[in-house]
Each structure stands twice: as structure tokens, then as C-alpha cells.
Design a protein around this nucleic acid. Structure first.
Length: 507
RNA sequence: GGCGACGUAGCCAAGUGGUAAGGCGGAGCUCUGCAAAAGCUCUAUUCCCCAGUUCGAUCCUGGGCGUCGCCUCCA
């Protein structure tokens, strides 16, 4: 398959260093605040990339780190008067729960920086020994000018980077571009022992140490958001490659486009987001995944909440098509040629092989869904259903993983009643939040046909529905329609079924 | 200021040197007494603007304009 490589700024064929084995390292979260939808976009993309590689028959080793120690989580902890571990566990736990809700596959390894202090210290020692780092009063710093290729990933030269770079008060760096590998602990800060003084790793070094420890360098794919290119990934390269015989550290550097909200990057520092978990409480997780799939992974994407509603409808129709295909009894007509869905499959795979064109792949699935009738008529229903299932699995929205409720939605309570001597199943929301004034609103619309004396809102709705059913039974359609309109006027949507009727509250 | 990305219908969005996928929404129709669901049909003479290259450009080149990102912590 072909993938865009930030390192070379071109689309290249992905050829694993080990045949049939792709080693991936994706920069995970620094749990110092709530995760947001922008994080979800990134992790969802790498999840689909991983699923597709597996689908193509490769073994994938997927490492995603947790930077569980950094300045920000310490600051949050101090502000709240709790331990930094508590802060990390809280936000990381919430993040993991959200990932599970979106059916993001578990990483094969999910290392925490604090679990790799020993290799981190060893790597820093080696960098010092080779002249790439030095010990200052406040920290151990990386000597950027010692690494001639610095800036290559971000396509920047040192002069460009010097602009705006400065040494903050209290920093003992020798050059404004230098960055900390190890920060000595101030009183009250967490610390781990090290030859140069107790402290904590700086941001960046954990990824260099852990990717080497768990995957070995060089490896195949290093991923993250576009905003990690500089300085994070540039610094990882500067730390790792001087110690390697055969750079580059990673063959492919893959970066996902950022999510914007109101035309601005969604980010922790701007605070222009709501927690991912809150969004997942309001929307279907698979619909959010589907929404991201419909946009190229490298493009900036402006988030609008109403787009999720559109994606929810679209994905629901996809499932409907799948259900229709799957529920079609096997054809007894064996004359049909096998492989009616072969062309769809080829287009689907070709789209994903072309730099993960998920939007193109999704459109193939819509094409297939639109042709469901023809496929059924051609006796290819089960073949099409099987393909759709497989294709949706690659995208992480397989019917097995379905989180979208089947229609009719939220029918949680049902009662068996009797209308005109026939059974009548009445169903509606379990605990409807009906406005208290509903009875007063409904009464003038339905009386005297229906008596609502002393009714609670829910009972009023049900009485009206039953009255309408009775009217239908005596073929008094005019009255039945009046009652439907009356219910609609107070926000009740009524759907007739073979067995009876289902109602719901239209917000 | 430097570097980079993006700019396609009401909204979202794919894509190609040869004449615009798909989704949402909207409109009409079919089918069900009505409604819902489902199905069918329609919905960009045109791809931010201007020049250039070309037989031909939305796609290539140059110049604008606009939006965003990175250059400082952020997927």
C-alpha cells in the first residue's frame, strides 16, 4: 500500500522492514486534561490504518505510549492539591474508556514513561558520552547544534528555528534551541534517581527510549498528530538517530490532520472543546467514527456537531442495507456467477491502499448499499453481506461492533393491551421526560373524543393512542388522523406497527 | 516574518490533464387509509480569483485573495 511519508514529503510504498510484520509506534496521550475529539480523530485514524494492515495479511505490532509524567500534569496536581498520579489516572482512565466506546483496538503495548526510567537514563547517559547532551544546573540538555540533520523532519533550518527561540530565566541551556532531556526536581516535585541528580524525564525522551526498547530502531511507522512534527518528533529523531548505525529511526512518519472548532485548532491550551466523554454521551460512537472516515485523514477538518447527526443517519442506512442483505434467505438459484461483489471489493481495497482514502472506501460501501436490491435480485445477497461485514470491520464499524440502536430507537417499554377485541402492543420510552403541561395542551385538542380527567402526562398520551386505535378499528380515519395531529402538536411522534403502535417524544 | 496545508453544490466531502464520486439536507414520485420506514428520480455547464503552459486544466506553473497550522505546551 501507499502512504504519505512526512519524512520525504511524498507518497511511498509501505514495505515493512520485516516481511509480514509492521512495527508501529503512535504517540499517545499526555493525561493532564480531558481528551477531546481531536485526539479521537487521530487515534481513530491509526486504528483504521492498523486494521487495514492486518486485513492485508500483515502482522502488526502496535505500541502507543502514555506520557504519564510532565510539567502540565504536575501543575494540574499542584493546583488541585492532589498527587500527580491521581491526575494521570483520572484522565487516562477516562481516555481509555472513550477509546473503548469507539472500539479502538487496544494497543499491543501501552508503555508508561515512568515505567521506563532505566532505559531513559541509559539513553541520556549515552547521549552525554557522545557529546550530544550536557549537564546544566537545572537539567540535562540536548545539544541541538551537535546534530546536523536537526530540522530535517519539519523541513526547517536552524536559522529559521532560532527566530523566536530564547532561554527562559532559570534555564541553564547553552543554546536557545537546546531542550531538556532530564529535569532536576524542585521541592515537592516527583523524582526518580539519576546519575546527575534526581528528577524526571523531559518530554520527547520517553518516546525515543520506549520505541527502541519495545520495537527496536529502526521500525516502520511512527505516527501522531500534525502538531507533533515539531518539536516532538524532530526531537525524538535527534535523540535516537545519533545512537543508531542505520538511521532513520522510523521509515514512515505519518501525521494526521488536526481538528478545528470554530475555525481554530481544537487544543488543550485554547480550551475550545468539551471532554470527549461528554460528546460520546450525546452521540453514537460509531457515527463519530463514520464522520471522520468521510474526510481525508491529512486534511484539516472543521468540526460541527450537526455533522454527527448526518453521519448517524448515513451509518444507520448502511446498517439497514446490511440487515436487508443478511436477512435475505440464501438463494436456491445456483446459476448466478460468483463474485458479483468482486468489483466493490477491489475498489474498496484500492481506495485504502491509496494513502488510506477512507472517504473513497466509504463511498464504495454506499454504492453497494444503494445496489442492495439488485444484488439481492442477482442472488448475491449473502456474498454482499459478507463483504460488507468484512469491509466495515476494517473501518471499525462492523455490525458486530454496532453501537447504533436498531430502529425503532429507544423503545424500552411495551404493554400488551386490547383494542376492539384484538391485541394491541403499545410501546414507548421507558421514562419519558414529558412536560407537565402536556395534559393541558392535549386536552382541548382531543376532548370530548378522549377523556383525560386526572391523567398523568404519560397516561394521557397512551389514552389518546388507544382512542386512535379504536377509531382506526371502526375505520373512522378522520378521527384517527385528528388524534395523530393532536399528538404531533404536543411533540409526540406516533409510528404504526403491525402489532400496534410506538410513540416517542420528538425533543 | 519564515515554513507548510487547505479553499469543490445549502452543508460535509472524494477525485482526475479530457470534461465533476459519495454522504447529509432539500424537492418530486411509488408504496402502505394517514404518518413513519423503505424504494425511485432530481438537486455544481462547474471546482476561490487572475494570468500562463496545453488541442484541452478543477487537477500543472506563476501571481493574488481567504482560512488554518507549525515556528512555545498540545493528537
Amino acid at each position: 500500500m501507499r502512504l504519505y511519508n512526512t519524512r520525504t514529503r511524498s507518497v511511498e510504498e509501505l514495505e515493512p522492514l520485516d516481511r509480514q510484520q509492521v512495527r508501529m509506534y503512535v504517540c499517545g496521550l499526555t493525561p493532564s486534561a480531558d481528551a477531546h475529539l481531536g485526539h479521537a480523530r487521530s487515534f481513530l485514524f491509526f486504528d483504521v490504518l492498523r486494521r487495514f494492515l492486518i486485513f492485508r495479511g500483515m502482522r502488526v505490532t502496535f505500541v502507543q505510549n502514555v506520557t504519564d509524567i510532565d510539567d502540565r500534569s504536575i501543575a494540574t496536581a499542584q493546583a488541585e492539591g492532589v498527587s500527580w498520579r491521581e491526575v494521570v489516572n483520572r484522565y487516562f482512565g477516562s481516555f481509555k474508556a472513550s477509546m473503548r466506546r469507539m472500539h479502538v483496538l487496544e494497543p499491543d503495548v501501552e508503555p508508561r514513561a515512568t515505567g521506563y526510567i532505566t532505559p531513559i537514563v541509559a539513553m541520556i547517559e549515552e547521549l552525554i558520552r557522545r557529546g550530544f547532551a550536557y549537564v546544566a544546573p537545572d537539567a540535562v540538555y540536548y545539544r541541538v547544534k551537535a546534530f546536523p540533520r536537526y530540522g530535517a523532519l519539519a523541513h526547517r533550518n536552524l536559522e529559521e528555528l532560532m527566530i523566536g527561540a530564547r532561554i527562559e530565566p532559570g534555564e541553564g541551556k547553552q543554546d536557545p534551541l537546546d531542550f531538556a532531556l532530564w529535569k532536576f526536581a524542585k521541592p515537592g516535585e516527583p523524582e526518580w534517581p539519576a546519575p546527575w541528580g534526581a528528577g524526571r524525564p523531559g518530554w520527547h525522551i520517553e518516546c525515543s527510549a520506549m520505541s527502541d526498547a519495545l520495537l527496536g530502531v529502526p521500525f516502520d511507522v511512527h505516527g501522531g498528530g500534525l502538531d507533533l512534527i515539531f518539536p516532538h518528533h524532530e526531537n525524538e529523531i535527534a535523540q535516537s538517530e545519533p545512537l543508531m548505525e542505520h538511521p532513520p529511526m522510523a521509515n514512515f512518519w505519518v501525521h494526521g490532520g488536526l481538528l478545528e472548532f470554530d475555525g481554530r485548532k481544537m487544543s488543550k491550551s485554547l480550551g475550545n472543546f468539551e471532554p470527549l466523554s461528554a460528546l460520546l454521551d450525546r452521540h453514537d460512537a460509531q457515527a463519530i467514527r463514520w464522520l471522520f472516515l468521510m474526510t481525508g485523514y491529512r486534511k484539516p477538518m472543521n468540526f460541527r456537531e450537526d455533522a454527527i447527526a448526518g453521519a448517524t443517519v448515513a451509518l444507520g442506512r448502511m446498517y439497514d442495507a446490511y440487515d436487508a442483505l443478511r436477512e435475505t434467505p440464501p438463494s436456491d438459484d445456483d446459476s448466478r456467477p460468483a463474485g458479483s461483489v468482486k468489483a466493490y471489493r477491489e475498489r474498496f481495497v484500492a481506495a485504502l491502499e491509496d494513502d488510506m482514502n477512507t472517504a473513497g472506501a466509504v463511498s464504495v460501501l454506499f454504492d453497494l448499499a444503494g445496489s442492495a436490491r439488485d444484488l439481492i435480485a442477482a442472488g448475491a445477497a449473502s456474498e454482499a453481506a459478507a463483504f460488507l461485514h468484512e469491509a466495515m470491520s476494517v473501518l471499525g464499524v462492523s455490525p458486530n461492533e454496532r453501537t447504533l440502536p436498531r430502529r425503532p430507537p429507544t423503545v424500552l417499554s411495551a404493554r400488551s393491551l386490547d383494542v376492539a377485541g384484538k391485541p394491541f402492543a403499545l410501546s414507548g420510552p421507558q421514562d419519558p421526560e414529558l412536560p407537565g403541561e402536556l395534559v393541558a395542551q392535549l386536552r382541548p385538542l382531543v376532548e370530548p373524543a378522549v377523556s383525560l380527567n386526572g391523567c398523568a402526562p404519560r397516561e394521557a398520551v397512551e389514552r389518546t393512542i388507544l382512542a386512535r386505535a379504536a377509531a382506526k378499528a371502526r375505520r373512522d380515519f378522520a378521527s384517527a388522523d385528528d388524534l395523530r395531529r393532536a399528538l404531533a402538536a404536543v411533540g409526540i411522534t406516533l409510528v404504526d406497527t403491525k402489532e400496534g403502535a410506538t410513540w416517542s417524544l420528538s425533543h
